[in-house]
């Protein structure tokens, strides 16, 4: 069954259906959120330290300046969190029954889209490395292509084995549709 029937990108073919939308595992942006929270906690601790050890900072004007700096830092943190979410949301790989579309947002104004037809697929590798990746079940999925085309790498994707399985199943379907014998697999 297709994952969703809505259009994830404008140039979806007429018979094309989206089967899977792959993003980085949620723990990756969460780690960045933790970084911002630690930074804010350190600044709050610094403010408390200043006010308790230096009475000058409790006087009206210095206290307002400190509050102004705190607000500016909060604004920066809000922007940082917003950027973290945007980069998580915009970096996406879409697997349809015909192709894999890799939408890569390298920076805010650097957007790159690459496609791979599933019939050019040669091998799918998954790599789950490290304790965090094993605990939360995320890892890299490398889609190797026939010929000189560049390999596709899904970095820190959630459920990498499931992603690889779906890609291979869709590839088998394409092979059957094209009249080729299904590939023998051991899974």
């Amino acid at each position: 069954m297709p994952f969703r029937k809505i259009k994830f990108f404008s140039d979806l073919h007429t018979q094309e259906e989206v089967y899977l939308v792959v993003r980085k595992h949620w723990i990756i942006p969460c780690l960045k959120v933790v970084f911002w929270l630690i930074l804010l906690a350190l600044l709050a601790a610094g403010e408390i330290f200043l006010k308790t050890n230096y009475p000058f900072f409790t006087e009206p004007n210095p206290a307002r300046i400190v509050a102004l700096i705190r607000t500016a830092v909060l604004m920066t943190a809000v922007l940082g969190l917003f950027m973290t979410w945007i980069m998580y949301y915009l970096n996406v790989q879409i697997i349809t029954n015909e192709r894999i579309v890799d939408i890569n947002q390298k920076s805010m104004l650097h957007h790159q889209t690459s496609e791979l037809n599933l019939d050019r697929l040669q091998d799918v590798l998954t790599q789950v490395k490290g304790p965090l990746a094993n605990f939360f079940n995320f890892g890299d999925v490398t889609v190797q292509t026939a010929g000189e085309a560049q390999n596709f790498v899904f970095n820190q994707a959630a459920n990498p084995h499931q992603v690889a399985k779906i890609i291979l199943e869709l590839y088998e379907k394409i092979r059957v549709r094209q009249g080729a014998a299904p590939t023998a697999r051991n899974d």
């Binding site: 922007l79 949301y89 957007h111």
Partner: peptide, 18 residues
């Protein structure tokens, strides 16, 4: 600086978002 950066972020979100 914040407004310029935010504008670019919002532009990319609305332009490239699904």
């Amino acid at each position: 600086f914040l407004v310029a950066y935010s504008s670019m972020a919002i532009f990319s979100l609305l332009r490239f978002g699904q």
